[in-house]
């Protein structure tokens, strides 16, 4: 990660920490709406890799604030923005789950020492890694085409569909390993899991993207799929 992006992420963490209680105002004041605006138009001239990094932090820290709309600025980029939010929220759900099973004791030992719990969290971690990879690869594609969503339709469909599929698995395992405490209003898990439930259905649910993607691939033929994958990187 570049030094500039590191600084951007540090700023985002500080601003979102404030916004978690103060609402969206600090995010607007910090100028995140200008992240993708070119420098010659008075913006920060960031790329989608920057947007992905900021949105992942937003997904983990302020999933209920409209940060995606603020940054994406055009409807066609919202599915991509939501993939980054979902990657961040899933990472947070995993981190909370790992903390919980390491500290919560039952039967005289931490939950983390039970193989059943270990296997569940491994499944969850694989899903989270998959969505993180999807968000990162989508960012690489968008930046290769000057953030033109019409030139990244294949990747947007793949990434949102994969994130949608992971959402169900990640939320259910996170809640299962947390037990009753995770189901309370007081505990922070629901902030990310309810957001994940909402995002799965927004900007294209599974069926929406599966059919669009499937028809695109069917038109290219069996060999065409591999040629598409390898020519787009």
């Amino acid at each position: 990660m570049s030094a500039g992006r590191d600084m951007l992420c540090d700023t985002a963490r500080a601003v979102f920490a404030e916004a978690a209680t103060a609402g969206v105002a600090p995010v607007e004041e910090a100028g995140f709406a200008l992240l993708l605006v070119p420098e010659e138009h008075g913006g920060f001239g960031g790329d989608w890799g920057d947007a992905d990094a900021v949105l992942r932090i937003a997904g983990a820290m302020v999933p209920d604030l409209p940060v995606a709309d603020l940054i994406a600025r055009q409807a066609a980029l919202l599915p991509a923005a939501v993939v980054s939010l979902m990657a961040g929220a899933m990472g947070q759900a995993l981190a909370l789950s790992i903390d919980h099973v390491n500290s919560r004791q039952q039967f005289g030992r931490p939950l983390a020492k039970f193989q059943a719990v270990q296997q569940s969290l491994s499944v969850m971690a694989c899903e989270v890694r998959a969505v993180e990879a999807a968000a990162a690869a989508l960012a690489v594609r968008l930046d290769a085409v000057n953030i033109d969503p019409s030139a990244a339709g294949f990747e947007i469909a793949c990434a949102k569909l994969r994130a949608n599929r992971a959402a169900g698995i990640v939320t259910s395992i996170a809640h299962q390993v947390h037990g009753a405490i995770g189901f309370t209003e007081e505990y922070a898990l629901h902030r990310v899991t309810i957001a994940l439930m909402r995002w799965r259905g927004e900007h294209g649910n599974d069926a929406h993207w599966a059919e669009i993607l499937g028809r695109k691939v069917a038109r290219a033929g069996g060999r065409g799929l591999w040629e598409t994958l390898t020519s787009r990187g």
Binding site: A130, A133, A134, A136, A137, F154, E155, A157, C158, A159, L161, R162, R165, D206, A207, W209, A210, E211, I212, L213, G214, R215, V217, A218, L225, L229
Partner: peptide, 16 residues
């Protein structure tokens, strides 16, 4: 079509 789409999305992600 949906099956092809789902399998494609998974394969693309796995490749990354």
């Amino acid at each position: 079509a949906m099956l092809i789409g789902e399998l494609t999305a998974e394969m693309w992600t796995l490749r990354q």
